[in-house]
Amino acid sequence: MTGSVRPRIASVVAVIWLYLGPPWVLIGAFGLYGYWWIAGAVAELGGNDPRAEVPLVFLWFPACTLVLGLAGTKGAFALLGNRESGRFLMRLVNAGAALMILAFTANWMHGVTQASRFGGASWEQVQMALFGLLVGVLTALPFIIIARKLGSPELRILMQ
């Protein structure tokens, strides 16, 4: 009796997402619960004040995390089973994770440049925003590399 044989990248990506997926599901679920809780409190306390609104990032970030976590866990099991559907799903999930990280960083750093009492961003704020964007790009980079590796023609042939 022998175990299954898979391309190395399939095993590595599957295990990485078995570790990332479930925590992302938990974070997303608690984040959405938090949004619902904060939105309720703000609506109750804010009354008709138009400034009393919860930023949309509190909604879309946990929602994306939840969806990517679920899809990543499903794709990881499919990859462990050496299925082509898993490779396709994991490409989407990794590209989506990279996009989500970049969008979140851009949103946050836009906020950093807007937080000015005198109108217009100071040079320090611009520096901070550029540094934040760099950190976001570096964080997204592994996901982009994984998505590219999973799209290689050799791997596609091996898994078909």
Partner: peptide, 23 residues
């Protein structure tokens, strides 16, 4: 052929558990 197959399967197991150890 059996030996080759066993070694390939062990190599896959090694990939899995080394990645899991790093995580």
């Amino acid at each position: 052929a059996m030996e080759q197959r066993q070694c390939a399967a062990l190599d896959t197991r090694r990939d899995v558990w080394i990645t899991a150890a790093v995580m």
